[in-house]
Computed example of a mutant assay.
Amino acid sequence: MQDWKALWRHGRRHPIETVISLLVIALISWAIWASGSWVVQAADWSVVGSNLPLYLSGSYPESERWRPWLWVSLLTVLTLVTLLRPTKGGRLRWLELALPWCWIGMIPLGLGLLGGGIALSAVPSRDWGGLSLTLLLTACSAALALPIGVLLALGRNSDLPVLRLSSRLYIDLMRAVPLIAVLFFGQLLIPLFLPMQLEINRVLRAVVAFALFAAAYVAEDVRGGLQSIPSTQTEAAAALGLSPIQSLRLVVLPQALRIAIPALTNQAIGLLQNTSLMALLGLVELLGIGRSLLANPAFIGRHLEVYVWLGGLYWMFCTAMALLARRIERDSPPLGGHTA
């Protein structure tokens, strides 16, 4: 009751602000109501429901679609286990030790399942597509961009002039070039410089292009974390008898990476969203599937349904990545020390 009285008094003292606030609330309410009515009543979701296998795996052979479906399912389960596991170890201490290795193993597992190998029939990368290709591009590019970015950040902070200047030149060059230009170079121009006998598949070229581009931004994020570590940390490490390399590896770099987690999360989310650019260069990832379906005469005019569905998928996976990063940040040891 007191809150309502306070709001009433505030409204009488500031009538213009109150009117504007009520108009904004009414506009938001109308937008939510109109959107909900369209989703439930007016939209035709047959373009989504009848093509769910295509959204997930693209033109992957129908008899082998269980392979990308299995990988995406394992990723989903691993994400839920990571988010829902107890904060404190206790009897589940083994789970905390196993989860990082499970995440690391998802990349070679995805490559093995999609590409085939020892006991699985080989499937060329031109048949990969849909959500599984989007997630694979993101995971492989991020796994490659992080170590390269860390090395670039260390190189830019190095006392060696050649290493420092070359790292700075690479970072400035990549940040000055649009991503689509880097992808175009990776997809269309790199094969022209290779011998005729050597052929790199399009997925690998896309991964390398994404990683080289993202590494420049990762380097700046890590460099910001390195600069935030006080010099007393390295002085204390030296007093304990640690060498400069040991001090960097055991004291400075772990703290810098923890500080950089929010910025690195933004880079990972941006990387997931930027994979949609590959639809312009021939790889049929998630957005490419939507574009190909809209070219089907049976689904002409269903643009809004397709893009709302794709927007919902991107939102769901970007939110999951943000929650995972928040969980990692919360579980990391506090700055300046380690948890017992």
Rank of each mutant, 00 (worst) to 15 (best):
residue 6 A to Y: 13
residue 8 W to H: 13
residue 10 H to Q: 10
residue 10 H to P: 06
residue 12 R to A: 05
residue 14 H to G: 07
residue 15 P to N: 02
residue 16 I to H: 00
residue 17 E to K: 13
residue 27 L to Y: 02
residue 28 I to F: 01
residue 30 W to P: 04
residue 32 I to F: 09
residue 34 A to C: 04
residue 34 A to E: 09
residue 39 V to E: 15
residue 39 V to K: 15
residue 40 V to G: 14
residue 44 D to E: 06
residue 45 W to A: 07
residue 46 S to F: 07
residue 46 S to M: 15
residue 47 V to C: 13
residue 55 Y to V: 02
residue 57 S to E: 12
residue 71 W to Y: 05
residue 74 L to N: 07
residue 75 L to C: 15
residue 78 L to I: 07
residue 81 V to I: 12
residue 87 T to L: 10
residue 88 K to C: 04
residue 88 K to F: 11
residue 88 K to V: 12
residue 90 G to N: 10
residue 91 R to F: 13
residue 91 R to V: 15
residue 92 L to I: 12
residue 95 L to G: 07
residue 96 E to I: 02
residue 98 A to E: 10
residue 98 A to M: 10
residue 103 W to Y: 14
residue 105 G to K: 12
residue 108 P to Y: 12
residue 109 L to D: 12
residue 110 G to Y: 07
residue 110 G to R: 04
residue 113 L to K: 02
residue 116 G to R: 12
residue 121 S to K: 06
residue 122 A to H: 10
residue 123 V to T: 15
residue 126 R to A: 08
residue 126 R to Q: 11
residue 128 W to P: 04
residue 131 L to P: 09
residue 136 L to M: 13
residue 136 L to G: 06
residue 138 T to W: 10
residue 139 A to G: 03
residue 144 L to K: 03
residue 148 I to F: 09
residue 150 V to Q: 10
residue 151 L to S: 05
residue 151 L to P: 00
residue 156 R to H: 11
residue 162 V to F: 12
residue 165 L to T: 09
residue 168 R to S: 13
residue 170 Y to M: 05
residue 170 Y to R: 05
residue 172 D to A: 08
residue 175 R to T: 13
residue 175 R to A: 11
residue 177 V to F: 10
residue 180 I to Y: 05
residue 185 F to H: 05
residue 186 G to Q: 01
residue 187 Q to C: 08
residue 190 I to D: 10
residue 196 M to P: 04
residue 199 E to H: 14
residue 199 E to W: 07
residue 200 I to S: 13
residue 201 N to L: 06
residue 202 R to T: 15
residue 203 V to N: 00
residue 205 R to G: 03
residue 208 V to M: 09
residue 208 V to H: 08
residue 213 F to D: 08
residue 217 Y to Q: 03
residue 217 Y to K: 04
residue 218 V to M: 09
residue 219 A to M: 11
residue 220 E to K: 15
residue 222 V to T: 09
residue 226 L to A: 08
residue 227 Q to K: 14
residue 227 Q to W: 06
residue 229 I to F: 00
residue 240 L to D: 03
residue 242 L to N: 04
residue 248 L to Q: 03
residue 249 R to A: 10
residue 252 V to P: 01
residue 254 P to T: 14
residue 255 Q to P: 00
residue 256 A to L: 04
residue 259 I to S: 00
residue 271 L to E: 00
residue 274 N to R: 05
residue 281 L to K: 01
residue 282 G to C: 13
residue 284 V to C: 01
residue 285 E to T: 12
residue 289 I to P: 14
residue 290 G to V: 01
residue 291 R to E: 07
residue 292 S to V: 14
residue 295 A to I: 14
residue 296 N to H: 06
residue 298 A to T: 05
residue 300 I to D: 15
residue 305 E to N: 04
residue 306 V to A: 15
residue 308 V to H: 09
residue 312 G to D: 06
residue 324 L to Y: 03
residue 328 I to Y: 04
residue 328 I to D: 02
residue 331 D to A: 08
residue 333 P to W: 11
residue 333 P to I: 14
residue 336 G to F: 06
residue 338 H to W: 08
